[in-house]
Structure formats: C-alpha cells, structure tokens
Amino acid sequence: MKRALVLAASGVVLALLNAVLLAPSSSQVYASDVFGALRLPGDPAFIAGHRGDRSVAPENTIPAFTAAFENDAMQFVETDVQLSRDGVPMLFHDTTLERVAGTRKRVGELSARQLKRLDVGAFYSERFAGTRMPSLAEFLDLAADYDKRLLIELKSDWTLAEIDRVLAVVDASAVGSRVMLQSFSIETLQNLQEAAPQIPRLMLIRELPADPVPMARQLGVLALGTTARAVTAAPESLQRLHEAGFGVLCYTLNSERSWAEVRALGVDGIITDTPSELDGWLAQNAPGT
C-alpha cells in the first residue's frame, strides 16, 4: 500500500513536470532582451518605422522598407501581413485595396500573382508608379542585408493553419531571430502562443485595463502596443507593466506633443510615420541620444 502511494505521488510529480516543460511559454524571451533596459520617465524611446518609412515612399513597399532599413534612427521596422487567396503572406494594411490600388477587392480575394499586378505606388506619387506589393519573403530577404528588428502585424483573426504559412516563411529566412509578431486579435495571439512560443509577441490594444499584467502573462506576450491616449489616461497601468517586466510601445505618433507625452511617462518604443523627425526631436529633447 505504501509503495503504491509513493508510485502514485511520483506519477503526479512527473505529470506536473511534463505539463510545465511542454506548455507553450514565452519565458525564454523577455522585453529587455528585445528592447534593452525598460525606459524610465524621461528616457528616449526606440523608434519603429510604421509600414517602413512612409515619409519618403509609399507604405509597405520595397522603397519604403529600404529607406527604413537605411535610416540609422530606427531600431524596428513595422509592417502588416495578410494572406492572398492562394495562401501567400503579402504585405498590406487596409481591409480593401481601394485606397492604395483602386479596387474594392480584399487581399484574400486575389492570388499572389494577381496582387503582384497591382500598382501600389502611384497613389503616393507618380515617381513611384508601377511599384508592386511585396511578399513577406521579399521583405525578409531585404532585411537580411541590414540589422533592424522586424515588427510584423497579423491583421484580423488567424487560424493555426494560416499562422503556419507565416512561420514557414520566417523559418526559411535568415532573419527569424529578429522577427517579432503582433496582433489586436486575442484568437491570433493565443494561436501564436501555441504555434510559435519561441517568437517574441506583442499584443496591440486600444485601451489599457487597470491591471494589464495578468492578461499579458496569460497570452505570453512580452509587450503591449497601445495609443498615447491610453497611457496618458492610465499611467499606473504602464508602471505595473514595467514592474512586471513587460514593455510598452505606442502607435502611431507623429507630433511633438504626443512624443513629449509618452516620453514623460517612460514608454519604451514609438511607432511613427516620421522617424527622422522623431529622431531629430529626441536628439534635442532627450540628453544622451
């Protein structure tokens, strides 16, 4: 009887150990591993170029990404990924193609070949007429020539099978260690946690709850990305995140007023359409940059 109890207890211990060891976890990667030391109020934030460098070239295109990669001010380059009808990860932000390419269709309604025929540069200026939509693979190939980190948003809800399409491209690239995935979708973040616990993840959220730490821990993210309005309305939430080791980024800030507001609170990163302007502002207003 005693031996049976010992064996049973041993079985429980082994089961618990297996549950801990096999459960998806982001504990191998911390915000400080990716962002450096978390910022204190008044510290300069790192700069992330929104959809490349939109201030000099059409968003989410090779010219915009090249400008961002060659801009020493930026540590991160941000983009958006959606699947074509035939399952190819393509870089595009909007729900429909109308604003950029003049058609009301969605990315998922066209094949990658059809998407490649669209002009996604003429809307910006005639100089960029004929610019084509890049695939995720093309973006990662370009990134291999530079040292920037890559912040990739998965638009809307993604299934595990759809996420695998992105992971296959990331795994085949030479820059997988510099990729960070982000989403507004809880479903997508949960599926990312299951499918790729080793890849750093960021949760996008428009408002901060009073205590966002339990949510961040449950989803296995290392940072939250939110608005300037959210952090100025709830600075105690930002403090709680920092105390627990989570980073905080703000999107998409393009004015000196918003930069000053979030720097005063100690936000770790700023996603912006005007990276060079932000870099110049930080040089003037944040000693040591």
Score class of each variant (00 low, 15 high):
residue 146 Y to P: 02
residue 118 L to H: 05
residue 129 A to I: 10
residue 106 R to E: 15
residue 151 L to F: 15
residue 124 Y to G: 08
residue 115 L to Y: 06
residue 146 Y to R: 00
residue 141 D to T: 10
residue 112 A to S: 05
residue 105 K to V: 05
residue 140 L to T: 05
residue 110 L to A: 02
residue 106 R to Y: 11
residue 115 L to G: 06
residue 138 E to N: 04
residue 112 A to R: 02
residue 104 R to S: 11
residue 110 L to Q: 04
residue 148 K to V: 03
residue 121 G to M: 07
residue 151 L to A: 08
residue 130 G to F: 07
residue 131 T to L: 00
residue 116 K to H: 15
residue 112 A to T: 01
residue 133 M to N: 09
residue 128 F to E: 09
residue 130 G to N: 04
residue 144 A to Y: 04
residue 123 F to Q: 14
residue 141 D to L: 01
residue 109 E to R: 00
residue 148 K to W: 07
residue 131 T to N: 01
residue 117 R to V: 04
residue 151 L to R: 07
residue 109 E to C: 01
residue 121 G to W: 06
residue 115 L to F: 06
residue 110 L to V: 12
residue 129 A to K: 15
residue 151 L to M: 14
residue 139 F to D: 12
residue 147 D to P: 02
residue 136 L to P: 01
residue 104 R to P: 03
residue 151 L to S: 10
residue 128 F to A: 06
residue 150 L to D: 09
residue 126 E to C: 00
residue 129 A to G: 13
residue 122 A to G: 08
residue 141 D to P: 00
residue 120 V to N: 09
residue 129 A to P: 00
residue 136 L to R: 02
residue 142 L to K: 12
residue 114 Q to G: 00
residue 147 D to L: 01
residue 129 A to S: 15
residue 152 I to G: 08
residue 140 L to R: 02
residue 110 L to W: 05
residue 148 K to H: 10
residue 113 R to G: 11
residue 104 R to K: 09
residue 104 R to D: 12
residue 138 E to Q: 14
residue 149 R to S: 13
residue 106 R to P: 03
residue 150 L to M: 07
residue 142 L to T: 08
residue 110 L to Y: 02
residue 139 F to G: 07
residue 108 G to Y: 03
residue 136 L to N: 09
residue 131 T to C: 05
residue 142 L to H: 12
residue 131 T to M: 01
residue 138 E to F: 00
residue 107 V to P: 01
residue 132 R to H: 10
residue 109 E to Q: 11
residue 127 R to G: 10
residue 138 E to P: 03
residue 149 R to A: 03
residue 106 R to D: 10
residue 121 G to D: 10
residue 136 L to C: 02
residue 106 R to F: 09
residue 114 Q to A: 14
residue 153 E to S: 00
residue 146 Y to M: 01
residue 110 L to C: 04
residue 123 F to E: 11
residue 108 G to V: 00
residue 106 R to I: 07
residue 125 S to C: 05
residue 138 E to R: 06
residue 129 A to Q: 13
residue 142 L to V: 03
residue 109 E to Y: 00
residue 138 E to C: 07
residue 152 I to A: 13
residue 128 F to C: 02
residue 107 V to Q: 01
residue 142 L to N: 11
residue 114 Q to L: 07
residue 138 E to G: 05
residue 137 A to E: 15
residue 108 G to Q: 03
residue 110 L to K: 04
residue 114 Q to S: 08
residue 107 V to N: 04
residue 134 P to N: 13
residue 108 G to I: 02
residue 110 L to P: 02
residue 109 E to F: 01
residue 125 S to W: 13
residue 129 A to F: 03
residue 138 E to V: 06
residue 110 L to G: 04
